[in-house]
Amino acid sequence: MRSDNRPPLILTAGAIAGLLFLHLPILLIFLYAFTTDERTYQFPPPGLTTQWFAVAWNRADIWPPLYLSLRVAALSTVMALILGTLCAAAMARSRFFGRDQISLLIILPIALPGIITGMSLRSAFSIMDVPFSTWTILMGHATFCIVIVFNNAVARFRRLSGSIVEASLDLGANGFQTFRHVILPNLGSALLAGGMLAFALSFDEVIVTTFTAGQQSTLPIWMLNELVRPRQRPVTNVVAIVVFVTTFVPILIAYYLTRGGSETAGGGK
């Protein structure tokens, strides 16, 4: 063993400072949810209170955006699960003409900045005179959620040994029975992880949504409006905590579901 295997001090310091830089800011959101000061962002807070949680609960303008966000996230997760799994099943093992182009097409919606996806959909709705609705929001969300499910499912498909599928066929099961009893149970946790990540991504999305929502308000759009024209600032913090937890928990679950595999969920967003 060489003494070289101990990291240089400056590297350790840099790595720790970098990680702190990534994590400390979020803590302030929690602190400011308890401040007694509702007009400015004064630090340290002049006093602490828990009243804002009750105030937020009673604010009627928060609930409809919350419901809309949950509905959009749930529906786009379902759509992404179906479309993403189908893609993954086709792309995992076979080689065919145009395969690279298709994988580029799947990745493109999150590889290009959100504003391009948003503005493209906005242009299309304008040309075809499509009125804004939950469905227009959903079209954007489902499109960029497909790749999340795809990434998780395709990694699992590749690990899935081909021989158990052949064994199932040899034992007389047809393709659908094999899918139901052999492939799906093996795919389960990867799909669950992909679905969780897709839900988190959709629940929190704001850039594409502002272009496809018209006058409707999802929870992130509500938050954005509060950031631009604040009233009762600590209430925004309470909602921010709700959004943070609603995305954080599924991500953590997704991580533990796929831990130890060749592809851990969340490596690429």
């Binding site: 979020i26 959101i29 630090f43 925004t236 913090n237 943070f244 995305t247």
Partner: peptide
Amino acid sequence: FYLGVMLPLWSSYLVKVYAWKL
């Protein structure tokens, strides 16, 4: 380290921006 990088990557974009406004 993996979680330490992945969680901020996935956690809410708006919440992160808001934290910096504070």
